[in-house]
Design a protein around this nucleic acid. Sequence first.
DNA 1: CGGCTTTCCTTAACATGTTAATTGTTGCTA
DNA 2: TAGCAACAATTAACATGTTAAGGAAAGCCG
Lengths: 145, 145
Amino acid sequence: MSSHFPVTSRSLPIALLRAREGVMAPIRDMLADTGVTEQQWRVLRMLAEFGVMDTKTLANRSSLLFPSLTRILATLSEKGLVIQTRDQKDRRRQFIEITPEGQKFIDARSEEATQIVATFKSTLGLENYETLLDLLALLDPDERD
Amino acid sequence: MSSHFPVTSRSLPIALLRAREGVMAPIRDMLADTGVTEQQWRVLRMLAEFGVMDTKTLANRSSLLFPSLTRILATLSEKGLVIQTRDQKDRRRQFIEITPEGQKFIDARSEEATQIVATFKSTLGLENYETLLDLLALLDPDERD
DNA sequence: CGGCTTTCCTTAACATGTTAATTGTTGCTA
DNA sequence: TAGCAACAATTAACATGTTAAGGAAAGCCG
């Protein structure tokens, strides 16, 4: 380390944290006063897009650990936004499905969500945006081929 | 939206989340069994690098909200890794300082931490690494000029 | 001086992140 | 088939994220 710059400046972990804060801020604003959290929103979107799936798949797609997912699904069930069903062939497993109310919640906000993403695309420029996604994928162990 | 691809694929928020997971994993491994968490580590590093500072500065540099910082500092004080001092001129304010034991904790691991960062630099290549930091900075509202 | 606002934390309350231990099911296998 | 390993959730325990409310100190202002 011959650099005279502070070690934590341009720190990758912190840069990732702050970028995520920046991106999530408008989404959190959108969800404020709906009673639905950022993570619950993430789960609902996956279910809206891909349909019924087992919890393991849902956990992977949502990037949530099982203990978190258990609690989130309990909350979403109470709110009537998802339905949990036991697999009759293997009663350890569980399938999750979005309800019509859940779908309605997503539909009412998907346009605004799309708009928020579009804002960041134009902030970075489309080319930079794609580059960023490619570089981020390299840091994700599940993405590296 | 004329794309036929799923809306959440190549989702920026999720990509940021997963990239951060990928980067933090080895750091978390390093800290496992030390009793010091990722956030506590972040606070200690800032104090080790910049020296004494008030809590507002510390919160900004560590990207922590005040309620979190309050709890973290209480924990670090109990562990004897930092010292909290009241500003005598303005007794609302507080200064935080790392202790010799805290410094020792950092020193014993800073080489490994540097090595972890170097791994990611070589995974991406130095040029990509710098590009990534630049693009991430664009997403951070506190960084945009 | 007495109130008013602002600032700096601190608490509270609830959701999530994280690791470890636990419970129920299934499958294998001696 | 009894016993045990493997698997899918769940629960527990503790730390943090997040928003809102509270408390103490400082500054302002009539």
